[in-house]
Design a protein around this nucleic acid. Structure first.
Lengths: 371, 371
DNA sequence: GCCAGTTACTAAAGCGTTTTACCACCTAAT
DNA sequence: ATTAGGTGGTAAAACGCTTTAGTAACTGGC
């Protein structure tokens, strides 16, 4: 008995525009169309022209899923962040999206909102979509999740953590230099009584910042006062809480450094409400340089960490891993920091340096237009 | 002559984990595995159990691309926004991501940054990835792009604009009620001299808000003073600029409504710097209720538009279009607004109602913890 | 005991690409 | 003229899944 053909319903007229349609239209084979699209150099110029013409006439877009299926490349990257409503991240996302799109990649964002469960869901989603790499821009990702990714050969990059591995690269942020510049700036103004509000102590980047702060203190010959060191949580609310505690102290520092800008901005509000003037009564310095920092009152002196640098390093590192780092030993990926002096820092009140009433020694970076 | 078989390289050992592997492991056919995964009810309980066991033992994840290819469903949605660093959007994205992920969808974000070119690139990316719907949360998307989407039968939702079509639903925000409540609130406090800073006038949602403001003014029997009406651009900087212009006027309003919170916050800074007290000298009211509104000084009275509502409506409407709205005529998708009274509004200075010195009549919604 | 009716399985076609294997043709050297 | 050596083309397998069509194994009614 002959084998019966049982073709599926042809779905007839509702068919999607196909590579076959393009081939027919250009009067070449399917393979030629494919090679043209993928810019294989051996395609005859004249045929290629016909193909491009057909593509634009038919308004054809190749099917990404079919492409991914056969080529094994999805051109999808995962970006794992803590909390999209934290202003640090949108700026980072923007940079990452830019560089990814420039290179023909799409990004999948996973916000963990600090829930281990959401984190694991996000990682799962990324694996299911076959991302070609994951940039981990949050902390506390659990080991099993990382192993899950590793077992599927997904390249990963982390901020500040972990030794480089076959599939893993750390992104090294130069906290030391940045924080040191901030502390130096305060020291030059004459501050010797320095307070600090850290980020969450489990977070490695917080630890590094705190360590850098203490080290910088030592460099300027100041012994840290543990009473003036608080643990915040990198939120506005946390900054407010810490600053309230600090203000309850019998003796106050003359300057306070914060582990990030949101903390500093929270602290600034509390200071202002308590009737203290910044920088005349107390100087304040942040970290990150989020967009908002320029718009608080007074504009915040801070240490800038380039989100664009960070995003581009993350992307570059992921690509380097995927391409197996052809030349020599793995490159190091560094992210630079720099001091941005605005108006929240000035001479300490009791300083001999202070001209009259604590005018900042620095030029305004951007003066607000006066009416 | 016999047809020669020319199988590709089997890639042997590096093969991805397959549905075939699961089938083999569970000792059933591929089809049974597929049906089990897709929860087709006719699968025998015992076989299904074997399949699930095999899946978890092998740690198998179905290939999304292959699935999408054959089923024609990508479970991908596009979200088109203006500017991710505008705090309104991260809150919206969060809501949209939540509802999407709950329903097994992934989202692709396209930030246009107000460039037509980026917009068209974003739409193109979405088409290439075969999104099943696009939520357009920005304005100025050009007609050809929309037609491009429509020609591919991609459902779309818009905020505030356009008539419903086969593939299109508008999301209706109840600006009238919200703005009316805000104006009423000011009227009750005794304000009759009201200023307004709008958003960009090309933007339909701005037009609607401005119209609602003027209408509300009429309701309370106040004739608008055109001198006190400014066109901002929904940014902090724009709010600052308009407020500076306003302050240059010989006579000031006693209260100012802003088209969004960023504008109000910018305005607030300018007022504060100019030495005016809010609300004692001038009342200020925003729109949106972004997270930051609660943390400026004084906390901003504003009209809340729920981003979560908006996100869920957008998702719901897209689904409804895709499912061809089985029952009756298309549902209307509304987004509610509500007044949030904080401390930036109070009695006008010259009001007889004012007890002593312009204390706000309202309870604090959330008092800051005092040290 | 036979057949119609269910139920639940398996085999295999097909989704839209990429890519391999093969071949037809042209040119230039023998 | 014959052949080696490119070029640049075509046909068809394979990617991993869904889904249709076909079928085997029961069940129960007559």
């Amino acid at each position: 008995m002959a084998i019966k053909k049982r073709p599926r319903q042809p779905k007839s007229e509702n068919r999607r525009l196909d590579i076959r349609d393009v081939a027919k239209h250009a009067k070449v084979s399917i393979a030629t169309v494919s090679r043209t699209i993928n810019r294989v150099p051996t395609v005859d110029k004249e045929l290629a022209d016909r193909v491009w013409l057909a593509i634009s006439e038919l308004n054809y877009f190749p099917n990404t899923q079919a492409r991914a299926l056969v080529s094994g490349r999805t051109r999808l990257l995962g970006l794992l962040i803590s909390e999209i409503t934290n202003p640090f991240f949108p700026e980072l996302i923007r940079g990452f999206e830019d560089i990814a799109v420039e290179n023909g990649y799409e990004i999948l964002i996973g916000s963990t909102n600090y829930h281990p469960e959401r984190m694991s869901l996000a990682v799962r989603r990324m694996i299911e979509r076959n991302v070609e790499g994951v940039a981990v821009m949050t902390f506390g990702v659990e080991q099993p999740l990382l192993e899950e990714l590793a077992s599927r050969h997904v390249p990963m990059v982390f901020v500040d953590s972990g030794p480089p591995g076959d599939l893993v690269r750390p992104l090294l942020v130069d906290y030391r230099k940045g924080i040191q510049q901030g502390v130096q700036h305060l020291a030059v103004l004459g501050h010797r009584k320095l307070g600090y509000i850290s980020g969450p102590s489990q977070q490695r980047s917080s630890q590094l910042r705190t360590a850098a702060f203490l080290e910088s203190l030592e460099q300027i010959g100041v012994t840290p006062n543990p009473e003036w060191i608080f643990e915040g949580d990198h939120t506005l609310e946390g900054g407010m809480r810490c600053m309230e505690q600090l203000l309850a102290l019998p003796e106050l520092p003359t300057a306070i450094m914060c582990s990030n800008d949101m903390t500093a901005i929270g602290g600034l509000r509390v200071l202002t409400r308590a009737g203290l003037r910044v920088p005349e009564d107390i100087s304040l310095i942040g970290f990150d340089d989020i967009h908002l920092a320029e718009f608080v009152n007074p504009p915040l002196t801070t240490v800038r960490m380039s989100r664009n640098d960070l995003a581009r390093s993350a992307f570059g590192a992921l690509r380097a891993i995927a391409e197996q780092e052809q030349g020599g030993h793995p490159r190091e990926w560094k992210v630079t920091t720099s001091l941005v002096v605005r108006q929240s820092t000035g001479y300490p009140r009791d300083s001999a340096l202070a001209p009259a009433a604590g005018t900042p020694s620095t030029k305004k970076k951007k003066s607000s237009k006066k009416v």
